[in-house]
Design a protein around this nucleic acid. Structure first.
Lengths: 249, 249
DNA sequence: TTTAATATTGCAGTATTTTGCAAGAAAAAT
DNA sequence: ATTTTTCTTGCAAAATACTGCAATATTAAA
């Protein structure tokens, strides 16, 4: 049997059943496990499948969530994301909110850093699910179609059952005096639940949103432990947020 | 025998069997292996076939191999998905499993049909979240990185709290005698929970999986109400599945 | 037709690839 | 913590590939 022939059969088997054992393949193809292992290694290198301990799994739906082409103020958000990621410590249990800034943060989690991540955002989850070092837990519930996050009573109930070291949050509006506000009442309830569930809350927020407000209030500024913008912490635009019980990053 | 004539025979042989050994060709054509090797090398250079260690394979052979970025057996799966979608009724509460076949089904849900869909598959959820007519509920929990579905005790608990009119399921392996089986014990527990939570279970399964089995059993065939393959229900390959308490579609 | 140039073929020797095996390391499972 | 399974590494045997060369066949030209 030719090597190519054998490798094709391996691909078929993996595509068909999503997961196979090296030992099963070896038996089926009547070659040694070492040979199968080498084949699978090659196929992995060629991105035909993914090799795992003891077997192989299909790439299947590993469409590496391509960033939707036009993210507003991407550069600023990437700066913020980088700062946020620098806060992460090995083994931390964190929550990551929905929104493009938080998605950018998820994207930047280093491959070496073992983390437990909670989220209720489908895009964030999809991003994190490609990271083997991340233990990912999705908080379920009714998905609201525009934001692609779970929301509603059920989700909030689920949030009451967990506790994060850090929650990395976005917000619609933020103001030194009025705190974090939102356009949607539902979203406010959800974010409240997240903040309740976290020991420390970290706000990711581009400077453009500073000093803006809307009608529903999530929380006061002092309930946030760290605020990250794309600006240097010494920037004058942040003056109003100084002298509060708030770390600027 | 002329060289050209010989090379034509080699091409024929490769096209016919998809793969050939140099030694076999040498014997058949009554020339030395070196000659065959040189011929094959030329044909490779001229893109008539692909030379590999010890033999040659047809081009189509390797082209289908490179299709792994696409979905395996997509056409068959689309046929299945279409049949599955035809079962849907306005206002139904359904569950859609993970896997490429079920994803295809989700993709095909008509824009007019109002549905409540549960799923624990991130790709399926992402697909459905773009459909305003679908009320989407994600069943949360720890996401297993390869399959991109939530799984584990938490997820199973959540499943115990709901009830679907129809569950559309995939399976790793299916056999008339041994029923639905899986590679993973975890997956079996999950699918069992889905079946418990549904009034009727519909199996989506390409015919290639028929009469295959693995070590962990999800359920017997008679626990499935409808089995959908890409074949016509009268096809002989389905004979073993007839006379069971099972509708074929 | 004859001769010279060119191409093809098989062979021998050497290089490379493939495969299975074994021993120690690493990773899961218990 | 221990046991089992899987992984890695190095190695050796077998199969296959490549190179140069000589013998033969084919073609082209005189």
């Amino acid at each position: 049997m030719l090597k190519e022939e054998r490798q094709q059969l391996i691909i078929n088997e993996v595509d068909l059943h999503n997961r196979v054992l090296l030992t099963d393949l070896a038996e089926k193809l009547e070659v040694s496990v070492d040979t199968v292992r080498r084949d699978v290694k090659e196929l992995d290198a060629g991105s035909k499948l993914r090799k795992v301990h003891g077997g192989a799994v299909s790439l299947g739906y590993t469409h590496t969530a391509a960033r939707s082409s036009n993210v507003y103020a991407l550069n600023e958000k990437m700066v913020i994301a980088e700062k946020a990621v620098s806060m992460l410590k090995e083994g931390a249990v964190i929550f990551i909110d929905g929104g493009t800034t938080c998605l950018e943060m998820a994207r930047m989690i280093p491959p070496k850093l073992k983390l437990t991540c909670f989220t209720f955002s489908l895009p964030v989850a999809l991003q994190l699910s490609g990271m083997p070092q991340v233990d990912l837990i999705f908080i379920g519930g009714r998905i609201s179609p525009d934001s692609m996050i779970s929301n509603g009573a059920y989700t909030i109930q689920r949030l009451a059952e967990v506790r994060f070291d850090y929650a990395f949050l976005g917000t619609g509006y933020v103001d030194a005096l009025h705190g974090l506000t939102e356009f949607d009442w539902d979203v406010v309830q959800l974010k409240k639940a997240v903040i309740r569930a976290s020991k420390k809350a970290v706000l990711l927020c581009i400077s453009e949103k500073l000093n803006s407000q809307h009608r529903f209030k999530t929380c006061d500024i002092h309930e946030i432990n760290t605020m990250i913008t794309e600006l240097s912490p010494e920037n004058n635009l942040l003056n109003l947020f100084r002298n509060q019980d708030l770390r600027l990053l």
